[in-house]
Amino acid sequence: MTRTRVSLTRPAQGVSKKIGIYGGTFDPIHYGHLRPALDAMHQLGLSQVRFVPCYQPVHRDQPSTSSALRCQMLQAAIAHQPGFELERCEIERQGPSFMVDTLRFLKTQYIGQDLVLLMGSDAFSRFLSWRDSSGILDLANLAVMHRPGESLPQQGELAQLLHQRLTTKLNQSAGQIIEVEVTQLDVSSTQIRHLVQQGVPIEFLTPRGVIETIKQNKLYI
């Protein structure tokens, strides 16, 4: 199986050293994923956002669509957005998809560049249950994307972690957490799958290329 080829050279002087990493099942990808990623890229000055479809999620139900078709939909969705890239490392690695393993691999590929793990507030609420969450913070900074006015946890272990790690500007290579207010669209992959199953149009919820892939392959029916 062909592995993703990535330049191992250091970034040119003056070029952003921060790369966004955005994982998920993406079954299918939709504007609720894409717009927050674009917001985060611009607000944090990321050189790119790499979308990482998981092979076998460990914190949610298994995807109903093959990894090949999820990658095809994702590639169609991001094809015309500069800085958005498909990262296949979890698909190629196979097995359970643990983010700490993914970040360790990507650190060997993007030498001298800082990784910023993008996650929504729902994912962040479960962060301490992830495998080696402290190891993740040794490898990357976290950007917690949430709707304007939404507050992060004020009590418990997550609140303690935020007290220790929260910053308003990423100025370290790893270990920091930053809030990013993003455009929050009320759309989900589950909703799209249900609409397709019911024969309801899904236009304006996900890009045209994704819709075409769903129709051509008779997905979610």
Rank of each mutant, 00 (worst) to 15 (best):
T4F: 00
T4Y: 00
R5V: 12
R5H: 11
R5I: 10
S7E: 08
L8V: 14
K17S: 15
K18I: 02
I19C: 07
I19M: 06
I21S: 02
Y22P: 11
G23V: 04
G23A: 09
G24T: 04
D27F: 06
P28I: 00
Y31H: 12
G32Y: 14
H33F: 13
H33R: 15
L34A: 05
A37L: 14
L38W: 08
D39S: 13
D39G: 15
A40Y: 02
M41F: 01
H42Q: 15
L44F: 08
S47E: 15
F51L: 11
F51V: 14
P53L: 05
C54W: 02
Q56T: 06
Q56K: 14
P57Y: 06
R60Q: 08
D61E: 12
Q62S: 13
Q62A: 13
T65E: 00
A68D: 15
L69M: 13
C71E: 09
M73F: 01
A76V: 09
A76S: 11
A77T: 10
A79I: 01
C89I: 07
C89A: 03
E90N: 03
R93F: 02
S97F: 05
S97R: 04
F98N: 05
M99D: 01
M99G: 00
V100L: 09
V100C: 06
L103K: 07
F105S: 06
F105L: 15
T108C: 12
Q109V: 15
G112C: 08
Q113V: 03
Q113A: 02
L118F: 12
L118M: 10
G120I: 01
G120T: 02
S121W: 00
F124N: 04
F124A: 03
S125Y: 10
L128W: 05
S129N: 14
S129G: 07
W130V: 02
R131V: 08
R131D: 01
D132N: 10
G135C: 01
L137A: 07
L139N: 03
N141H: 07
L142E: 03
V144G: 04
H146Q: 15
H146V: 15
H146C: 15
H146R: 15
P148W: 11
G149S: 03
S151N: 08
L152R: 10
Q154I: 09
Q155K: 13
Q155C: 07
G156I: 13
E157H: 12
E157W: 03
L158G: 09
Q160N: 11
Q160K: 13
L161W: 04
H163N: 12
H163V: 07
Q164A: 14
T168F: 08
N171P: 01
N171D: 11
Q172E: 13
S173F: 08
S173M: 12
E181C: 14
E181P: 08
V182G: 06
D186I: 04
V187K: 10
S189Q: 03
Q191R: 07
Q191A: 10
I192S: 04
H194L: 14
Q198W: 09
V200D: 03
P201C: 11
P201G: 12
I202L: 03
E203I: 09
P207Y: 05
R208N: 01
G209S: 10
I211P: 01
E212T: 13
T213L: 04
N217R: 03
K218V: 00
I221T: 03
I221W: 00
